[in-house]
């Protein structure tokens, strides 16, 4: 099984109570499924519920080793062992 490292930032980190964790999965979707099973409270911070379908919120960024999945294969992007997946929202404080 592929094991990737997840890094959460800002209010995602705050909500999960952890900043880094390891998660199993073959692609980003599976990794996120695992993450939400472990931290169900992240569901509404990361996804919109559009008529029963989950849709990634437009301001949530998911990067694999620094590359945005939007410019790869989206949630279908294949994950390799030791990949680092970063999930971050914008922050507003000043």
């Amino acid at each position: 099984m592929v094991m990737a490292k997840i890094k959460l930032f800002a209010n995602l980190r705050e909500s999960a109570g952890e900043s880094e964790m390891e998660m199993q999965g073959e692609n980003v979707q599976e990794i996120l499924d695992g993450l939400l099973t472990r931290f169900p409270q992240l569901q509404e911070l990361i996804f919109n519920d559009v008529e029963g379908n989950r849709e990634l919120r437009s301001y949530i960024n998911i990067l694999i080793n620094g590359n945005n999945i939007l410019h790869l294969e989206g949630l279908d992007t294949i994950v390799n062992d030791d990949d680092e997946i970063a999930i971050f929202p914008p922050v507003s404080g000043g």
Binding site: E14, S58, Y59, P89, P90, V91, S92, G93
Partner: peptide, 17 residues
């Protein structure tokens, strides 16, 4: 900024954090 965060979150978590 919108290339990365295309729309604004509806809440400002930083306000109370």
């Amino acid at each position: 900024y919108r290339c990365i965060f295309s729309t604004s979150p509806s809440t400002d978590a930083a306000r109370t954090a």
